[in-house]
């Protein structure tokens, strides 16, 4: 086992899978010679050549639209969209074509591709570089949405995403790209799409999170030490399809929940999760479910970013509120 950060783990997963599967083509802005603005594809063009690791013209819709064509013809494209805020022009391709082609063609044409996107705030980046668009994507039929929360998870989930028969958007929480270093399983190992991860078992309250805020939840747990609150933490890993069973099983045990996400509150995934709990485990609830989220505003510039991001303090307050109901 080697200790890697998330950038290194994703790079390793890409490298190993490209060795195994020569149908894989990586395409995007600055992914080749530069090795990606976050160095995620560092060294891959040198190893696999510029036909398999391709610097494209600057056109996000062009990147994912042509990736769809490649996938139709039997390649396994992995497109990189450099930052979350630049994913929006791709929504036409993703919503109207990539997510529909299997259904429209009655299974005759399929589109197994991966779109990797560094996402989320917290790195003091410029405007349009700190977005959390996951709810828009989860709301889009025909695509899967995967979000790793640690380096090892990133490797196993990315390999599953590449091998999945359907399009997967792989959102990489850039705030923790280099913040966590952990042992990453070597070789060919996968983590199934659609299965949540039980980060910590508990009986008092369920905290549901994904991506970078999982770490904030763990920090909140530290702060709550000594409060005798028995917390169960679920990292959803895949937000579409969501592991509803994992959520419901936990709620039946704890009866209380807090959902944490960085995206804006209104119509965020927290709303969907709470609706699911109401549908399937309403009678188990002992308190209204709390949400700790971003706000319904554009992510502020760096001087005000700390106002926006969910932090351990806000999570602690929500947990205490749920527990004291």
């Amino acid at each position: 086992m080697v200790k890697l950060n998330m950038v290194e783990a994703i790079n390793l997963a890409l490298r190993e899978e490209m060795e195994r599967d020569d149908r894989i083509v990586i395409l995007g802005e600055d992914v080749g010679r530069e090795g990606g603005v976050f160095r995620v594809t560092d060294g891959l063009q040198a190893r696999f050549g510029d036909e398999r690791v391709v610097d494209t013209p600057l056109a996000e819709a062009g990147i994912v639209g042509t990736a769809m064509g490649m996938a139709l013809y039997g390649l396994r494209p992995i497109a990189e969209i450099q930052f979350d805020g630049f994913l929006y022009p791709c929504l036409d391709q993703i919503t109207n074509h990539i997510g529909r082609i299997r259904n429209r063609s009655r299974g005759r044409f399929t589109c197994p591709l991966v779109i990797r996107v560094p996402y989320g705030g917290g790195i003091h980046a410029p405007e349009h570089h700190s977005e959390s668009p996951e709810a828009i994507l989860a709301h889009t039929p025909g695509i899967k949405v995967v979000i790793p929360a640690t380096p090892n998870e990133a490797k196993g989930l990315l390999l599953s995403s590449i091998r999945d028969p359907d399009p997967v958007i792989f959102l990489e929480p850039k705030r923790i790209y280099r913040a966590i270093r952990e042992e990453v399983q070597e070789g060919d190992f996968t983590i199934p799409i659609g299965k949540a991860r039980l980060v910590q078992e508990g009986r008092g309250v369920t905290i549901i999170a994904w991506g970078a805020v999982v770490r904030e939840v763990l920090n909140a747990v530290e702060e709550l030490k000594g409060n005798k609150i028995d917390m169960e933490i679920i990292d959803l890993r895949t937000i579409s399809p969501m592991d509803v069973d994992a959520i419901i099983t936990s709620i039946r045990k704890t009866g209380r929940a807090v959902v944490v996400h960085e995206a804006p509150k209104t119509c965020g995934l927290g709303a969907e999760i709470i609706a699911l709990i109401n549908e399937k485990a309403f009678l188990s609830l002992q308190a209204p479910i709390e949400r700790v989220t971003g706000f319904d505003i554009p992510v502020p510039l760096l001087k005000s970013e700390h106002y926006y991001l969910p932090n351990p303090q806000r999570i602690v307050a929500a947990v205490k509120k749920v527990m004291s109901f």
Partner: peptide, 21 residues
């Protein structure tokens, strides 16, 4: 420096805010 006031053009100066996309 990360202050939103940096996107406010003075009255009469018709320069739009920076366009990063």
């Amino acid at each position: 420096m990360g202050d939103e006031e940096g996107s406010r053009a003075p009255e009469g100066i018709n320069v739009a805010p920076v366009s990063i996309p």
